[in-house]
């Protein structure tokens, strides 16, 4: 069964697109305002777990588990649940006395016990210690094993990468699938193949791979190269010259000593004075990329304008 969101129009613009998610674990990179509206919509067709959902402070961990399993009319063993949630040591501790990480982990018992086919979880790793993140992954796997599908909503990619099979980005331009690969996977693949069609960037410990069309523009600031994708600058290990050579076939153009621009995204050439121009890009925020005077004629030729 698919999970469908219906479009929302705001100020004559489509604010939330319509989309049907396929079964499995799907992550959506989404801002908080959109997430709130999407969650409200989905309450009718799925169990929606929100970050601000609370707990019963006076119950012990054990009692909390037994309450939610009874509510769902299942007879799972409490000791198994304690293991899955890594709470065996705290079984008799009252919920109000737990650490925040443990409490946030415990809160996932609600989607775990939900009886609907789809479960929506807002910010699965919200305020979870780094070393306890594996517990959340374990719980989400447990939910999948029950045959339920999951939609994860988050404002950060890192919180979706470890658990989601597919990741989408929802913003002004609708909803798009994002392509990522883990570092471990990258090493196994043919390096030659990578060079051809992916742009490698470093983001925290992860290596992300972007498709060239996703890139808006590339800039070099004091020797460091930044690849701009949807308003976020990711640092790249490659130099501008290397990138220029690799990206030329995809319609990229070195318009300035320290800039490469994706010509597909050029919206307008803005003239400041007679011979000084900037390129305005068709991206979320108004982004201007400078263009050197020497390159102007060639750029106009490439774009087919006079």
């Amino acid at each position: 069964m698919t999970l469908t969101i219906t479009p929302v129009i705001e100020k004559d613009k489509q604010w939330i697109p319509s989309y049907s998610f396929q079964e499995g674990v799907t992550g959506v990179l989404i801002d908080m305002r959109r997430a709130a509206v999407v969650m409200k919509q989905l309450e009718k067709s799925a169990y929606v777990h929100q970050v601000r959902d609370g707990h019963y402070p006076h119950l012990t961990v054990q009692e909390t588990f037994s309450y939610y399993t009874k509510l769902a009319e299942t007879d799972w063993s409490i000791s198994e649940l304690l293991k899955t949630f890594d709470l065996s040591a705290e079984a008799r501790t009252k919920v109000k006395k737990l650490t925040e990480t443990k409490r946030n982990t415990l809160n996932l018992i609600k989607p775990f016990c939900a009886k609907s086919e789809w479960v929506v979880i807002e910010e699965p790793f919200h305020r979870i210690e780094q070393e306890d993140r594996f517990v959340i992954e374990q719980i989400i796997k447990g939910v999948v094993r029950q045959g339920k599908s999951i939609l994860l909503l988050s404002t950060s990619v890192e919180d979706l990468l470890p658990v989601a099979d597919m990741i989408y980005r929802m913003d002004e331009r609708g909803i798009h699938k994002m392509e990522f690969k883990d570092e471990a996977v990258t090493q196994q693949e043919e390096p030659a193949q990578l060079k051809v069609n992916k742009i490698q960037v470093k983001h925290q410990e992860k290596t992300l791979l972007f498709n060239p069309p996703e890139v808006d523009y590339i800039e070099s600031i004091e020797g460091a190269v930044y690849i701009n994708v949807a308003g976020v600058a990711y640092s790249s290990p490659m130099t501008l010259t290397e990138l220029e050579a690799r990206l030329q076939p995809y319609g990229f153009y070195r318009c300035h000593r320290s800039y490469i621009v994706n010509l597909q995204k050029v919206r307008e050439l803005v003239s400041w004075t007679k011979n000084s121009y900037s390129i305005k890009l068709d991206v979320e925020k108004t982004t201007m990329v400078p263009i050197s005077r020497a390159k102007l004629t060639q750029l106009k030729e490439l774009l087919g304008i006079s």
Partner: peptide, 8 residues
């Protein structure tokens, strides 16, 4: 909210 969404 979650109680109302639960099977109860």
């Amino acid at each position: 909210r979650s109680l109302l969404l639960s099977p109860a």
